[in-house]
Computed example of a mutant assay.
Amino acid sequence: MVELSQDEFERLVTDELDALPDDMVDGLENLVFLVEDRPEDGSLDLLAVYDGTDLTERDRYGFGELPDRIIVYREPHLAACDTVDELRDELHVTLVHEIAHYYGIDDAELHRLGWA
């Protein structure tokens, strides 16, 4: 298990977001990334969640709407990884996975592509 403070973990998340390809992140609008310790149920099974309306389901959206959210859970990530390098890799996969949901890619397709 990796041990990192909230600030250190948030810096890693930011670093991994910055390292994602431009064509993946340039289309993100009205979306915020948040870090929380654990999901509401307290489990360590869920690494992150996309909370919003994906692009394929939007009609009129964005003006006056609260932003969609990708919430990355710190404690489940730390519990799942033994090294900081492993944590970086897991964060990368997690961010790609959740951003894919924003673009309307479901879990079945993510499994097929190797991102789930």
Rank of each mutant, 00 (worst) to 15 (best):
D85N: 06
D89W: 12
F63Y: 13
T94I: 04
V96I: 03
P67L: 05
E65T: 06
D89E: 14
V72Q: 01
R88A: 15
L55G: 02
D54K: 02
H92G: 04
Y61D: 01
Y73S: 11
D82A: 13
E75Q: 09
H92L: 02
C81S: 09
H77N: 11
R60H: 04
L55F: 00
D59V: 10
L66S: 13
T53S: 01
V72P: 02
I99G: 06
G62T: 01
R58Q: 14
V93K: 01
V72K: 00
R60A: 12
D54C: 10
D54Q: 06
L66E: 13
L91R: 08
E57W: 10
F63N: 07
E65Q: 06
L78E: 10
D68R: 08
V84M: 07
H97C: 03
P67H: 04
L78Y: 09
Y73W: 08
P76C: 03
L78W: 14
T53P: 00
H77Q: 11
E98Q: 12
A100F: 04
V84T: 13
I70H: 02
H97D: 02
I99C: 05
R58Y: 12
I70Y: 02
R74Y: 15
L95M: 06
A80L: 09
D85C: 00
T83V: 06
D85R: 08
D89I: 11
D82S: 14
L66K: 15
I70W: 01
D51N: 09
T53K: 06
E57T: 09
G62S: 01
A100D: 11
E75D: 15
H97F: 00
I70L: 03
L78K: 14
R69I: 04
E65L: 02
L95V: 05
V96D: 04
E75W: 10
R60C: 08
T94C: 04
C81E: 00
R60I: 10
D68F: 11
G64A: 05
E75F: 10
T83D: 01
P67W: 05
L55A: 01
P76Y: 06
H92I: 03
E90D: 03
P76L: 08
L78F: 14
R88P: 15
I99K: 04
D89V: 09
Y73K: 13
L95I: 02
E90M: 05
R74H: 15
G52C: 06
E98S: 08
R74C: 14
H77K: 12
P76W: 12
F63D: 14
L66I: 07
D59M: 13
D59S: 14
E75R: 13
I99H: 10
P76V: 07
V93I: 09
L87K: 13
A100K: 00
T94A: 00
D82K: 13
G62F: 03
D85G: 07
D59Q: 15
L91Q: 07
R69N: 04
L95D: 00
D85Y: 03
P67M: 06
V96Q: 06
D59R: 15
H97K: 08
E57V: 05
I71K: 08
E57K: 15
A80P: 02
R74K: 15
G64E: 07
E86H: 10
D54H: 10
V96M: 00
I99S: 02
T83Y: 06
L78H: 12
T53D: 04
G62C: 05
P67Q: 05
R74S: 15
R74A: 14
A79R: 10
H92S: 06
V84G: 07
V93Q: 07
R69L: 10
